[in-house]
Design a protein around this nucleic acid. Structure first.
Lengths: 280, 280
DNA sequence: ATCCTGATGTGAGAATTCGCACAAATGGAC
DNA sequence: GTCCATTTGTGCGAATTCTCACATCAGGAT
């Protein structure tokens, strides 16, 4: 049995589609299709039903995928062990962080890290989707809440508050009862900052909903209304003015997350220290 | 990371040499060497020291091999699950048995199994070395003592006794105090039949030591001396005559061993039943 | 000493595998 | 309805990988 065939099949089982599996393996979708077909042939066992627009696992396929899944876990553990085996400071480190933190607090200061440790190459992923440290999609992650996955070590390294921001002109000419608001889309309705904004807005109008915080800031700058922005974003922007509201301000904690297997690696420690400085 | 590279490296770590790893993977030794080199390159980590005629794992290599070893276990579990998923009776089944049992009791009757289940292809390994059911070197095994490996199911399906045999002519012309003996080599000194023979021989001469029971029988047939042979072997041979000794006869139990995962597979059950008939 | 066995290393041709470009089909947005 | 994004399928040329044959070296048996 070819282990690479099995790897491709397990990726298909995990991701659901040929294309997604291909992306996660960094290969062409045709390759995944061929590998899965080759596995079926070598095992003389049908693992997937090829439906017009989707691959669906057969019962046997599901059973095999379930039994084989630990292989992928172990493969990732091997990769972490490799990373942990490297003594010197260097290599490529992947950091996952919410886009705003990545863009505002991390990216501008990366030059300092490169100066201090020229051997380190950083891959910074600014995505809302939380990358899996277990699957080694990232080596270090910034999260806004404490993660619960097993095997991960989390440390609270920062805290930031939100405030309402609008353009100075908008705040001057608009009475509070006529305020309009800019918010996240509904997928973020459960986030504390969104709930806080919604409660304050009450019956007043939401004129824009967007998943991107930078878009919200841009809208607020042009005078569309008020947006709930992190202070580290709003205070630094001369085109935005804070509108203070009463009550307890809402804030989020920032957690630095690393896999247990990588905690003591010199390179990881160096990068983790750098990130803590960024948030200090 | 290429899983096939890792597979080849783990095989090297387990088998000790490139050539042995190549044999166990059914590839050329050059392929193993290149795969291991490729893995080292992709990980940027030295895993083996290439000594003149041997590969030796580095410390990092040992650690990686240890962490990755469960992948091989899981791969074998997948193969067993595949075998167990097959509903019909058919396919290739590998049986491991001590050479004498394989040659005398199993092989001659295989024709009956083929007649009953034409879809089954049998691979019969008559080796002293006990094949690993966990590594799927065999699907079914006959052992002379109860195995202790985890995951294996063993059933006692037979018992046979040993007796001393020599050529009729030899027994006629040789007085007991002048008997010479044929025995296993020293690697078998702990086996019950060997201890029994040695105790009986006492100070009398051992004229031949060989690891092969068939060779012992051949030597006894030509009048070299007495050999301790299973009765199922000696009684059927007109060129051998039993020499009865007092005391309790020595015997060995025969255990039929199958992996837990394969116990209920139709094909395995069919072959297991056939083997029980052979031993009955 | 000589032969045999089994280990790793090297080079070249054959076989395999991969990615790309393109196609077809479906569902959602507008 | 059209347009766009996403998914799977096909053919072909390029790149990679494997096997084979041969070489070298060491150890053991004769």
């Amino acid at each position: 049995m070819d282990w690479t065939d099995l790897q491709h099949f397990l990726a298909l089982a995990r991701e659901g589609t040929l294309s997604a599996a291909a992306r996660s393996l960094n290969v062409d979708h045709v390759t995944v299709a061929r590998r899965v077909a080759a596995l079926e042939a070598s095992l003389s066992l049908k693992l997937v039903d090829r439906r017009p627009r989707s691959y669906e696992l057969t019962e046997n396929g599901k059973r095999i995928a379930k039994i084989g899944a630990p292989m992928a876990e172990t493969a990732f553990a091997v990769e972490r062990a490799v990373q942990a085996s490297k003594s010197g400071i260097g290599g490529e480190i992947t950091i996952s962080a919410p886009p705003s933190l990545a863009n505002v607090l991390i990216a501008p200061k990366l030059i300092r890290l490169r100066q201090q440790h020229p051997g380190i190459r950083i891959k910074l992923i600014g995505e809302k989707r939380t990358a899996s440290l277990n699957r080694r999609e990232a080596d270090l992650a910034l999260r806004l809440s404490r993660p619960t996955e097993p095997g991960l070590i989390a440390r609270k390294i920062g805290y930031f508050e939100f405030a309402l921001y609008g353009s100075p002109d908008y705040l001057k000419r608009t009475p509070p009862h006529a305020f309009a608001f800019v918010a996240y889309d509904s997928s973020m309705d459960e986030a504390p900052q969104q709930r806080w904004l919604m409660r304050f807005a009450a019956s007043r109008e939401i004129v824009l909903r967007t998943s991107d915080l930078e878009n919200q800031a841009a809208a607020a700058r042009t005078g569309m209304g008020l947006a709930a922005l992190p202070k580290f974003l709003g205070e630094a922007d001369p085109q935005l003015e804070r509108y203070d509201v009463g009550g307890r301000p809402v804030g989020r904690e920032v957690w630095l997350v690393v896999h247990r297997d990588l905690r003591r690696t010199p390179t990881i420690r160096a990068v983790a220290g750098f990130i803590e400085d960024c948030l200090a």
